[in-house]
């Protein structure tokens, strides 16, 4: 059974300034920021964010069995992870999602570094990473809102391959189920996603009761 894939070509994220700064190590209580620093950093973040093209896709797949060691999905996929099984103990379906901001921001980061502009390289990298995460946050929030109309809810936490005991090799299952090659992503033999600023995640779908 192939999953119904939903795609959004423009994920409407806001510029995740706080997260970008935090990723770069900014501490608002201690930092000493000169005007020149602030102007330049803000300008780089702005131009970097303009290079991000946040897109996303997701699907839901029914969970046939959860034996607390592994999940068996209704398309036959088996995902082994005690941690994921515990997170999804009340879930009857799995939500799988991928978000990417495209290749331009990583290229800009590399070009800046090659040109000796290390600050721009580092900031572009952080902008790409945090924008991809923000896109995933948006997808999760959207899905949660969408499900609430149907008497369902999404687990608050989400899980990605590589977390806890969830093997990175599960990326292959996500790529297959979400048909991510068609979405424009590639998975290397060492399980690295390209474009680099892309993320995948799972969450559980649970039934809820409205009073």
């Amino acid at each position: 059974m192939s999953a119904d894939i939903n795609i959004i070509n423009i994920v409407p994220i806001r510029r995740p300034d706080r997260e970008i700064m935090s990723r770069l190590g900014y501490n608002r209580h201690r930092n000493v920021m000169f005007h020149g620093h602030a102007t330049r950093i803000d300008g780089i973040i702005e131009s970097g964010f303009a290079l991000c093209r946040p897109r996303g896709c997701w699907a839901r797949v029914g969970i046939v069995e959860n034996d607390s060691m592994a999940l068996r999905l209704d398309d036959g996929t088996v995902i082994e992870s005690r941690a994921l099984a515990a997170l999804l103990c009340d879930s009857h379906a799995l939500w799988l999602a991928a978000a990417s901001v495209g290749p331009d921001i990583s290229q800009a980061s590399s070009q800046a570094l090659a040109a000796g502009d290390g600050a721009a390289g580092a900031i572009y990298d952080a902008v790409g990473s945090e924008s991809a995460d923000a896109a995933m946050d948006w997808l999760q929030h959207y899905m949660a809102s969408h499900l609430s109309r149907a008497g369902e809810k999404l687990t608050r936490k989400r899980f990605s391959p590589g977390y806890s005991d969830l093997a990175l090799a599960v990326q292959r299952d996500i790529f297959r189920i979400l048909r991510l090659e068609q979405f424009g992503l590639r998975l290397s033999e060492s399980l690295i996603i390209e474009p680099e600023k892309s993320v995948t995640a799972f969450a559980g779908i649970e039934k809820t009761i409205t009073l």
Binding site: L24, R30, V32, I41, I44, G116, G118, A119, A122
Partner: peptide
């Protein structure tokens, strides 16, 4: 020193290093 004390963060450290270079 400022980087150690978190008075500077990474972009500021790099900007200074770039100016130094």
């Amino acid at each position: 020193e400022m980087f150690e004390k978190k008075e500077y963060f990474l972009p500021q450290l790099i900007m200074s290093a770039d100016a130094m270079r």
